[in-house]
Amino acid sequence: EAHAAIDTFTKYLDIDEDFATVLVEEGFSTLEELAYVPMKELLEIEGLDEPTVEALRERAKNALATIAQ
């Protein structure tokens, strides 16, 4: 499951495998979680700032909209 989540994140969020791995290690496994989890939870991840989190959430929401079509 972790590998599938990493693949999904790299494909749809335009991030590298290392960043995707950090997200999975922090407990995220779906685009929905990244799109809708409280921003505070993402900001608790070391190295993430508000602009990065906002961009990540926007990419996740856009990916979900694209997949739904």
Rank of each mutant, 00 (worst) to 15 (best):
R59C: 07
V24N: 03
L42F: 07
Y36T: 13
A65V: 11
L48D: 01
D16V: 04
E54D: 07
T21M: 14
F28T: 01
T66D: 09
L56W: 03
G47E: 04
D16E: 08
G27D: 02
I67L: 09
Y36A: 11
L48I: 09
A60K: 00
A55H: 08
E58G: 04
L64M: 07
A20H: 00
A65C: 08
V37H: 10
L13H: 01
V37Y: 09
G47H: 05
L42Q: 03
Q69F: 04
E54K: 14
I6P: 02
A4N: 12
T66H: 12
T52D: 06
D49C: 05
A2C: 07
A63Y: 05
I6A: 04
E41K: 12
L64R: 00
E46I: 15
F19L: 14
A63E: 03
A35I: 12
G47P: 02
T52N: 05
G27W: 02
M39Q: 07
E17D: 07
Y36D: 07
D7Q: 14
K40P: 07
Q69V: 07
T30F: 04
A60N: 01
F28N: 01
L13P: 00
F19I: 10
E33Q: 15
F19M: 12
E26D: 04
V24H: 06
E41G: 09
T8V: 11
K11S: 06
K11V: 06
K40C: 08
D14A: 11
T21P: 00
F19G: 02
F9R: 00
A68W: 10
T66E: 12
D14F: 11
D7T: 12
A68P: 06
E32I: 08
A2R: 15
I15F: 02
I45D: 01
A35P: 02
F9I: 03
V24F: 14
E26N: 15
A20W: 02
D16R: 05
T52L: 10
D16G: 09
E50W: 13
G27T: 01
A20Y: 02
T66P: 03
E17Q: 11
G27Y: 03
E58H: 06
D7F: 11
L43F: 05
A60Q: 01
T10G: 04
E58V: 07
D16Q: 06
A55M: 14
T10K: 12
A63Q: 04
M39N: 07
Y12F: 09
T30D: 04
H3L: 15
Y36R: 11
A2E: 10
L48A: 04
A55S: 09
L13S: 00
Y36M: 10
D18G: 13
L43S: 05
L34D: 01
L64H: 03
A2P: 08
I6M: 07
V37G: 15
E25D: 10
L43Q: 04
E26C: 11
V24C: 05
I45V: 07
Y12L: 07
D16N: 09
G47C: 06
E1Y: 10
